[in-house]
Simulated assay, not measured.
Amino acid sequence: MQLLKGRVSAICGTHTHVGTDDQEITDGTYYVTDIGMTGCRDNVIGMESDIPIKKALTGLGGHFNVPNNCKSIMQIAIIKIDENGKSNDGFKIKIYDDKEEVISHCIVN
């Protein structure tokens, strides 16, 4: 963040599949460590669990399959950017399969 702070509108990390709510805006740059995955939340990285667990335990891979039924989650970050390209507000929305919504607002420094 330090290298790009104030020089870019946003820095959004992803791919750990576990969303963080550590959002902040500093010097006009929005930051979140991990937006989080959208997909099945009760499996391993959104896939049926047998092959990923087998790979982790034995090193032997296989085809990862998306389950037909699962508890799902959608995560998205919404960032407001002004006419100068600076972020001035942001929040993250998580929507679960049971329609529960969690909205987390960012800290503006």
Score class of each variant (00 low, 15 high):
Lys92Thr: 01
Asp50Asn: 08
Ile53Ala: 11
Leu3Gly: 01
Glu101Arg: 11
Cys40Lys: 12
Met1Asn: 10
Asp97Leu: 10
Val8Pro: 04
Thr29Pro: 02
Tyr31Gln: 05
Asn65Gln: 09
Ile51His: 09
Ser72Lys: 10
Gln75Ser: 13
Cys106Val: 06
Gly85Glu: 12
Phe64Lys: 11
Cys12Val: 14
Leu3Ile: 07
Lys71Tyr: 14
Gly13Trp: 06
Ile73Met: 14
Val44Thr: 07
Glu101Asp: 06
Ser49Pro: 15
Cys12Glu: 02
Cys106His: 03
Ala56Leu: 15
Asn88Gly: 02
Lys54Cys: 14
Ile79Thr: 03
Gly39His: 13
Asp42Thr: 13
Ser104Tyr: 02
Gly90Glu: 05
Phe91Gly: 01
Leu60Gly: 03
Met74Phe: 15
Thr14Ile: 01
Glu100Ser: 12
Gly28Lys: 04
Glu48Gly: 08
Ser9Lys: 11
Ala77Trp: 00
Asp42Met: 13
Gln2Pro: 00
Met47Thr: 02
Gln2Trp: 10
Val32Phe: 01
Ile93Val: 13
Lys92Cys: 04
Ile45His: 09
His15Arg: 14
Glu101Gln: 10
Arg7Gln: 13
His15Cys: 11
Glu100Met: 11
Ile35Asn: 09
Asp34Leu: 14
Leu4Asp: 03
Leu57Asn: 04
Arg7Pro: 00
Asp82Glu: 09
Cys12Thr: 09
Ser49Asn: 11
Ile51Asp: 08
Asn65Pro: 00
Leu4Lys: 09
Ser104Gln: 15
Val32Met: 05
Glu48Trp: 07
Asp21Thr: 05
Met37Lys: 05
Ile73Arg: 07
Lys99Gly: 02
Leu60Met: 06
Lys94Val: 13
Gly90Trp: 00
Ser87Arg: 03
Gly90Cys: 03
Val108Trp: 09
Gly90Arg: 02
Ser72Leu: 08
Gly28Asn: 01
Ala56Gln: 12
Thr20Asp: 01
His17Glu: 04
Lys80His: 05
Cys70Gln: 06
Asp21Met: 05
Lys92Glu: 02
Asn69Ile: 11
Gln75Phe: 02
Ile93Phe: 02
His17Leu: 01
Asn65Cys: 02
Gly36Lys: 04
Pro67Val: 08
Gly59Lys: 05
Ile53Leu: 14
Cys12Tyr: 08
Phe91Val: 02
Val108Gly: 00
Ser87Phe: 04
